[in-house]
């Protein structure tokens, strides 16, 4: 029984670590902040919640488990907001927006697409 718990918990923990590896691969692969943020958010949500779920299985049913669950819930609230604020910072302080993130005027692009579809 104990060994089964160890195996299940370790499986969760290694899944979390795999997500961390993906995160690190992502931040070195992409070359712009917003794309990197997309990779980093994976670790903030999936990585930590899976690895902490594994640790919850290890620790069993007690008060510590509740606190670990509270960490996961806290990160689910705070991490998207942090990403939103960082994106806000990047959009505000970026000097060459057109190079990295070109914003199309919504109406005109719609019209162009409609014209193309008519043709």
């Amino acid at each position: 029984m104990e060994w089964i718990r160890l195996v299940i918990g370790a499986a969760f923990l290694f899944c979390g670590l795999a997500f961390f590896v993906m995160e690190i691969y992502g931040i070195f692969k992409y070359d712009y902040v917003i794309n990197r943020m997309h990779a980093a958010a994976i670790g903030d949500t999936m990585g930590i919640s899976l690895s902490l779920a594994g640790l919850m299985i290890f620790s069993g049913l007690n008060f510590t488990t509740l606190k670990i669950a509270l960490i996961v819930v806290f990160l689910w609230f705070s991490s998207p907001v942090a990403s939103h604020l960082l994106a806000n910072l990047e959009v505000t302080t970026c000097d060459d927006k057109d190079k990295h993130m070109k914003v199309y005027d919504e109406l005109s692009t719609l019209e162009e697409e409609l014209k193309e579809s008519e043709k």
Binding site: G16, F20, E23, I27, V33, R36, M37, A40, G43, D44, G47, I48, S51, L52, L55, F58, S59, T64, I68, I71, L75, A82, L86, L89, E90, T93
Partner: peptide, 26 residues
Amino acid sequence: PKIADRIVAVNMMGTMVMVIMTIMSL
């Protein structure tokens, strides 16, 4: 190269340190 890069990286480090601390507590 940008300040947002650094903040993202430090945030990720924070996440990993949290996992390390929880493992240490066990």
